[in-house]
């Protein structure tokens, strides 16, 4: 993948397919230029056995092909900077009350092989446009700045107006773009 934001778009599709209602995407940059990505969902989760297998490119849950490259691509992007990927999951069958998956990936932002984050504005706006019934929470922090968006907060204001209305999608784009301007502007 040419941008980390494409990996994020791809991995989040797994949460959507897992039937998640709430999806959080967190990016945290610390003072040592370490970036931690967390994608947290309340989808159907995976058993320990499946978690073991998803890092293998020859494992997939889809039926159209026998390969699944989403997690291996993310793992590659993380490991080539000296970071890594970990998956914590609670399957619906074993944890009916509290199921879901958290994927954590760490990166060294200063490593020469760090894949640029790229266009998070488009990634987030397309996720919301395609899944207006889900709750998305996005937050990108670094020591001096933050970019954030919460569809739940938006819906408290919007009421009956759907999140995928053209005007609302445009507002999401502009809001994130403005916040990123400040985020990278200092």
């Amino acid at each position: 993948m040419k941008e980390l934001s494409l990996n994020i778009l791809d991995i989040t599709q797994n949460s959507i397919k897992a039937g998640a209602k709430n999806i959080s995407i967190f990016l945290d940059e610390d003072t040592n230029y370490k970036l931690t990505l967390r994608i947290i969902d309340d989808g159907c989760g995976m058993t320990a056995e499946v978690v073991e297998r998803v890092k293998n490119p020859f494992f997939t849950s889809r039926t159209t092909r026998k390969v699944g490259l989403g997690i291996p691509f993310l793992t590659l992007a993380a490991e080539q900077t000296g970071g890594g990927v970990s998956i914590e999951s609670f399957s619906e069958s074993e944890y009916p009350e509290n199921h879901g998956t958290t994927i954590t990936a760490t990166f060294d932002l200063q490593h020469i092989d760090f894949t640029p984050l790229g266009d998070m504005v488009t990634t987030i706006s397309l996720l919301i446009h395609g899944n207006p019934g889900l709750d998305f929470e996005f937050r990108h922090t670094k020591p001096s700045a933050v970019v954030e968006l919460s569809t739940r907060q938006m819906l408290e204001v919007l009421g009956e107006i759907p999140l995928d209305s053209p005007e609302v999608i445009e507002w999401i784009r502009e809001s994130l773009a403005e916040q990123y301007l400040t985020f990278y502007g200092d």
């Binding site: 993948m1 494409l6 778009l9 092909r65 699944g68 691509f73 266009d119 488009t122 397309l126 999608i169």
Partner: peptide, 22 residues
């Protein structure tokens, strides 16, 4: 918009359709 699509460049394509239709 699976891994294969996204890796091949589906995001700008989807975005172009969403923006143009809107």
């Amino acid at each position: 918009m699976a891994t294969c699509g996204i890796a091949a460049g589906a995001r700008p394509v989807l975005n172009a359709f969403v923006v143009a239709i809107n």
